[in-house]
Nucleic acid binder design. Structure first.
Lengths: 247, 247
DNA sequence: ACGGTGCAATCTGCATACAGCATACGTAGC
DNA sequence: GCTACGTATGCTGTATGCAGATTGCACCGT
């Protein structure tokens, strides 16, 4: 009996549809408040409405699409308030994440984490700034997600993924490209070093200051953007009453 | 123009189906590892397979049902390890929850919180212990959920709900009824008082000790149950390597 | 010109039909 | 008797058809 690898079975259409729509949404391929019409999507993706509907239900659970009152669906719109609250959730979860990673990360995972840090640091400044920022944000996502995985807490990874998705959505809806984001490379190295040395307190402190700085960057940028172009974004109110990242 | 109230429109079948199945699952109406067959469910609920499928996709996203390898779905089975990890997530989130509630809870919400505490304390010991524990656990759920709502963080509520669902699932799968759970009434009052007095540090400390105690109760009970009846539950391993509620 | 009514187009919700696949069972060959 | 193959049954995945609802528009009346 020779070792015959199992044939690659293409995933179900509703799964592929889900991935395709999710990617499109997170790439900003849909205009804000554009209605997602099943028949149109079905025609574009060349499938029937049935897998489309199932994919849309999943996206709805993800919070990436929202019912618009009477049956219709549209891409969820993330406000500044949402961003602040999402960062609060993210900080709460990622503190657990780094603590778990300090205790549980394997050598292999630590090496991968360092690789993310090094890759980000190696991004040459010559390139087009936007592309560079894009790549940096991808590395940022991978770094944080790997920390969560390293904690060994399967549920934590799932919860954080949901938060990440919505933050990515905010990003495409505001097209952030603040040059200050380059700072995260320094912050990432500090987080990595603390984890690699298994120093829980330092790691928690590092992730906290990283996320608080990120939150401030995002809020600042979005508010600047919404004052330059008023009424283009929801939730443009003062944030001073929020508990925002305390504790 | 007299005020005519809008007619009550019954929700869509897939929504009703979702609610019905969710309730059934969290009530333990399905045998562990029993396969959920679309056609059977459709026949029982007297609807076609289409709304059933949409409801099942949602439940899958909720983590309440899981694919069993080849297309089939079954109720998710929660192990002791999962319980520990879920409590870790829950603690991370609920610390944010109480901190937010300290800052944001309205007088009305505080009154409702106190009502939960009082109702729990008033549960007469005469009743059948199981019924009493059941009622207490319902009050427990309402108490914690209202704290999350009081924080004003809409995403936090959603994330916590997901955690609560899985813990409820664990409960029905292990039929916990540890008499020690009566302790939570004392712990709840302490949490409530700290929130009512807007003392963030005390509230965070109170929720932490409450959840750590709950985690210990649940783990102890499940492990006792699994040693009494070995191999009836998954994940019966030592937990000493887990980061478990540190930080 | 303006408001209201009726109609047409479009979309969602649901049911059903059909095809492919997995599993279980029975049967034939050894 | 045991293994291996063929077959039958049941379930999932997908497409499609139909009914009800919503929206936009045109037409009519004032």
């Amino acid at each position: 009996m020779v070792a015959v690898p199992p044939i690659q079975r293409s995933k179900s259409l509703h799964e592929q549809t889900y991935q395709a729509l999710r990617t499109s949404i997170l790439s900003g391929d849909f205009a804000p408040s554009e209605r997602l019409v099943e028949t149109q999507l079905a025609q574009q993706l060349q499938v029937s409405r049935t897998p489309i509907r199932e994919a849309l239900r999943q996206l709805q659970k993800d919070g990436l699409v929202t019912s618009d009152g009477s049956g219709g669906l549209q891409v969820t719109s993330i406000s500044v308030i949402d961003a602040v609250q999402l960062y609060d959730c993210r900080l709460a979860l990622e503190q657990l994440s780094v603590a778990g990673a300090c205790a549980q990360a394997t050598q292999r995972q630590l090496a991968q984490l360092e690789d993310y840090v090094v890759q980000a640091e190696a991004l040459v400044p010559g390139k087009s700034p936007n592309l560079k920022v894009m790549q940096l944000l991808n590395l940022d996502y991978g770094f944080h997600r790997l920390i969560a995985e390293s904690s060994g807490n399967r549920w934590l990874v799932g919860l954080l993924d949901q938060v990440f998705d919505k933050m990515a959505l905010l990003r495409v809806q505001t097209t952030q490209h603040n040059p200050e984001v380059l700072e995260i490379r320094i912050e990432h190295r500090q987080i990595y070093q603390a984890i690699a040395e298994r120093q829980v307190d330092r790691a928690v402190a590092a992730i906290r200051s990283h996320l608080m700085a990120s939150q401030a960057r995002v809020v600042g940028e979005v508010q600047q953007l919404s004052t330059a172009n008023p009424s283009s974004l929801p939730g443009d109110v003062d944030l001073l009453n929020s508990p925002s990242l305390e504790g």
